[in-house]
Amino acid sequence: MSFLKKSPWVLHYAATSCNGCDIELLACLTPLYDVERFGIVNTGNPKHADIFLVTGSVNEESRKVVENLYAQMPDPKVVVAIGACALSGGIFRDAYNVYGGIDQVLPVDVYVPGCAARPEAIIDGVVRALAILEERARERKTQRKLVTS
């Protein structure tokens, strides 16, 4: 992938994370890593977002929020799970209030490992998500053509 057709906007939600992955995620936006120069913007509004970044595993309370946010995002959309917690529950796996990874409630496309996930890894995950996003956008286009013809 040599260039991006669109500026992907990301939505971040901390499901039941310990904060470690969240600050690494925010660190990606700040001067050292600065993903904003590629047009990646962190938005607070799910209706503007293309990529959903979730950190931490889910519990009953956050499950509702995560599902709600996901439902509000327009298609095509991609979900990136960040950190060991979001992958499998991580260190909190045995805790009574944790369901496990985000993939228990959402279809996850990219898994970013690490506890805490490093900013480089997160950026790499987002880049992979972009490829999936473009692919989905293309599929939608062909589908639409088929429907109208």
Partner: peptide, 14 residues
């Protein structure tokens, strides 16, 4: 509150 509750204190017993 309750969105981030994990039940970490109980892990001390495990």
């Amino acid at each position: 509150i309750g969105y981030v509750h994990r039940g970490l204190e109980l892990l001390a017993e495990r």
